[in-house]
Simulated assay, not measured.
Amino acid sequence: MIDILFEDGEALVIDKPAGLPIDPPRAGGPSLANHLEDLRLGFQRNPVPVHRLDTDTSGCLLLARNPKALVRFARAFEERAVEKRYLGILAGELAQEEGTISLSLSKISSAEKGWRMIAARKGKPSITHWRRLAVSGGRTLVEFRPETGRTHQIRVHALAGLGIPLAGDPVYGDRATGPRTMLHAAELSVPRPGKPAVAAIAPLPADFAQLGFGDG
């Protein structure tokens, strides 16, 4: 059962569980696609995801309930009109209190490691504002507010910008430091002309509390 955080005639915001991919995996197994029919909630069409969250990332995911809404919401993301707030746990203690990371990102690939994103001068501009919230057990809870929406942006910015990867990140850090990549899409607000914004807050999942951070 997937929790619904916001619902009206145009939009759903769901609390995507960690570990659930948006697209069906090549190797098979469950994905968000298996839940879309249940998420119709009386509508004729399946809702469609407007943006992406990594498989490991939990929290707010916007779904459009009709084609016109999908176009409008996608445009809001492209125009950087959407407010996004993430919470992440770093696999180390961060001394600084707040700041802005501006590092361009580029995709690389190798036969041994597959593909990943790196900070590269010729990459796509990427900006993340961050604020330290708490330190516990040698880890740090950080609030991230990305201005751009690049693939793996927060994960790479944590490593390359803050010098500490997210706990549990198997690509940019160490899988053994957490139960998963510890990133949660905590809040989402999408403006709509002439209507109240689509707005939702996703409660912190249980695995954040297991690492010492109960409320964000």
Rank of each mutant, 00 (worst) to 15 (best):
G214L: 13
L90G: 03
S110H: 11
G168M: 06
K124T: 14
R80T: 10
K107T: 10
Q210P: 01
S110F: 10
D56G: 13
G9T: 14
P67G: 06
I201L: 09
P30C: 01
A185W: 10
F77K: 01
V135L: 12
Q153C: 13
P21Q: 11
F77G: 02
F6M: 06
G161E: 04
R40V: 09
L61I: 03
A18C: 04
P125Q: 13
I118E: 07
D169P: 11
Y172F: 04
I108R: 12
E37S: 14
S31Q: 06
I2P: 05
L94W: 02
V71E: 15
G161F: 10
R175V: 12
P191E: 02
A95K: 12
S110R: 10
P196R: 13
I164A: 00
P24E: 08
F213K: 07
R145K: 13
M182L: 15
D15F: 04
D23K: 08
G168N: 03
E79T: 15
R52P: 06
K84A: 00
A120P: 02
E79M: 15
G168P: 14
A186I: 02
L61D: 01
F213E: 04
L133V: 02
K124C: 04
L20K: 10
A91T: 03
H129D: 14
D174Q: 13
F77W: 11
P21Y: 12
R45Q: 12
R85G: 03
V82K: 00
P203W: 01
L188W: 07
F6V: 06
G194P: 14
L162Q: 00
P191N: 02
L70A: 15
L70F: 00
K122R: 11
P170K: 06
